[in-house]
């Protein structure tokens, strides 16, 4: 259990710091591109690099939202149960939510891994000579981080400590 918890927190930390690097680099590269254009200089790798930084940030931001329990959902039942103070049922619902999310993400990892294999075979360099196959790898990688966090939430719901 301790190991699972430590790993979950490691994912949180790494995502936070990588996000910081991503945001600051997309910011500085975009500003740099604007300034360079005044001097008629274009660096062709900035555009695709920045777009993939946003793409990576999508998943890492999602990883943080999972830890905070702030994912957007419809949640009509949850709000209702909260309002009638049905703690027990609410707890069960949280459990189902984490399990369903984990299983769906596992399916997504499988689906995106298959796409990754295809793209590795046929892909082309996008920037800095990095093949699109490796960039597509962001998808299963991101989903794997998310899946682990939901898995941890699920396991954690059995060991006393209540998930947020």
């Amino acid at each position: 259990m301790k190991v699972l918890r430590a790993l979950d927190q490691l994912i949180e930390k790494l995502s936070t710091w990588t996000l910081l690097v991503c945001v600051l680099s997309m910011l500085s590269f975009s500003v740099m591109a604007i300034v360079l254009r005044w001097f008629n200089i274009t660096l062709h790798w900035i555009e695709p690099l920045v777009r993939h930084l946003v793409f990576l940030s999508t998943f890492l931001g999602g990883v943080l939202a999972t830890g905070r329990g702030t994912h957007i959902g419809i949640d009509i039942l949850g709000k209702y149960l909260e309002s009638i103070h049905s703690e027990h049922l609410y707890h069960w619902i949280r459990r189902v939510i984490s399990l369903a999310s984990f299983l769906t993400l596992a399916w997504l990892i499988y689906a995106s891994y298959n796409f990754l294999l295809v793209e590795l075979k046929y892909g082309k360099p996008v920037f800095w000579g990095i093949e699109s196959g490796y960039l597509v790898g962001i998808i299963p990688f991101g989903f794997a981080l998310l899946a682990y966090r939901f898995f941890y939430l699920f396991v954690n719901s059995f060991t006393g400590r209540k998930a947020c």
């Binding site: 999972t66 957007i72 959902g73 009509i76 769906t104 399916w107």
Partner: peptide, 12 residues
């Protein structure tokens, strides 16, 4: 309706 994150719902 139970509150599963919407991105999971869409993907599923």
């Amino acid at each position: 309706v139970m509150g599963v994150p919407l991105f999971i719902i869409m993907a599923l």
